[in-house]
Write a protein that binds this DNA or RNA. Structure first.
Lengths: 243, 243
DNA sequence: TGAATAGTGTCTGTTAGACACTATACT
DNA sequence: AGTATAGTGTCTAACAGACACTATTCA
């Protein structure tokens, strides 16, 4: 066995470096449907996939960005104006073929932001509804694959975490929260079991406010620990999980 | 909101590129204890962390490696000679401060390999027992943190997946398998519940062989689908999960 | 026969899911 | 009063965990 770290014998300033990018999958809920924010590729001749839709993202800026997550937050702030959403890394994908400009590695994050996300609706970026495993438009690069992984991750974690709470404003009713779960999971959730679950996890605390409407007013809640994500001991329907 | 992909306006051949590396956390079980393989940093004057222990890994080679996972497999094969172990990405970490040679991003994978791993025991790489959240030696770069994340990921997934099966040879007894779970989780597992779980997941199939010893012989099994990992509907002890 | 491990049977507490029921507002 | 949604109570089936029991080999 040779087992050498042969590459590191070379001067790292000399070796050929891959391109390094960050892409962000930004989710929100609008019109009773999960949406993702997509940017337009620049329409200049020297750009690959010109004019197509793509995940918002781009090259790491070694001057501005102190780390990868900072880079993701910067891009998120640029596109949405949201400062501290839920943000989580999905993974990284790298290879020689995914970008015509050369060997590249991208670091994919997903973010959940509360409505109304209209401020992010402009010429550069548009919300697209999620249908099944992706969107109906073609995406640049391997972004369709990246999006699919992000959706998968989201759906899986929703089965056993408090993630959907981050798709809501700070104050919400339990029915609001339940609807978020149902929208992401694309299946109904039983009300009684849902409430037991939420309360026994100590996920929310009641506030001194009710939502009024043409029916019985609903108690409003906020997250007990807004910056933590809560893990439930079981999945919603004891079915096979994946990933 | 400006919301531009300003970086991509520049020629990507011009922008400053981070260093790109892959590190692999290779686990195995020896002497009733989980171990990780660590390499020695080269002992040459111009290398950072010279002579220290580090996770096996190094720069992506844009000539040899077609993608990140291929790069991880190449390093794994170099160090251990194992061709197709269980391999999973843990995530990526990048920033300006983690490598003195400049802005760098590393892609971390973890691998599970069956015993006996003695072939990987040489001057370049040594097995170290996992104690708690890491090893007792100091590690180069931010590798202690990377290792901690990998251990955490492993322990969490062991609660609800068939991962430990990949720490065993192809043929094993149920007691072997149970011991793997107990070693990784660092807690005893109830035999009867364990067996029910394994069988109802259709994880293993009996083979026409028994292991003999100074006691009742044990039925031997192999994985029903060696290349899939199985997810159980619940965690082992219905306790709070994390990550 | 005893030691040691393999493997099974039974009981019990917890809880998710189903579903029906009650509560409270507005029109 | 009727409607719509909020919120609760009850039953049941499933199952993890505990633990005791039986089984089978070798020394």
């Amino acid at each position: 066995m040779k087992a050498t770290q042969s590459e590191s014998r070379f001067d790292p300033q000399q070796i050929e470096r891959p391109l390094t990018t960050v892409d962000v999958v930004i989710f929100t809920v609008m019109d009773e449907c999960l949406h993702v924010l997509l940017a337009n590729r620049p329409d200049t001749p020297d750009e690959p996939f010109r004019g197509m839709r793509a995940l918002p993202g781009g090259f790491v800026d070694v001057q501005k960005d102190t780390d990868l997550e900072g880079c993701a937050r910067r891009k998120l702030l640029q596109k949405t104006g949201v400062k501290s959403p839920y943000l989580e890394q999905v993974g990284s994908w790298g290879g020689s073929k995914r970008d015509p400009r050369g060997w590249s590695a991208t670091h994919v994050y997903f973010a959940l932001i509360p409505p109304p996300p209209t401020h992010a609706q402009n010429r550069d970026a548009t919300w697209f509804p999620i249908k099944g495993q992706g969107v109906t438009v073609k995406l640049a690069f391997d972004h369709a694959k990246l999006l699919e992984f992000a959706i998968q991750r989201l759906r899986n974690k929703v089965e056993y975490t408090s993630l959907p709470a981050h798709l809501l404003p700070e104050e919400f009713t339990l029915s609001d929260l339940q609807r978020m779960y149902e929208l992401v999971l694309e299946r109904p959730v039983e009300k009684s079991a849902f409430r037991t679950r939420i309360f026994s996890a100590n996920l929310v605390e009641a506030i001194d406010k009710v939502r009024v409407g043409p029916n019985r007013p609903a108690q409003m809640y906020r997250l007990t620990h807004p910056n933590e994500i809560v893990f439930f001991p079981r999945t919603f329907s004891p079915r096979r999980a994946s990933e």
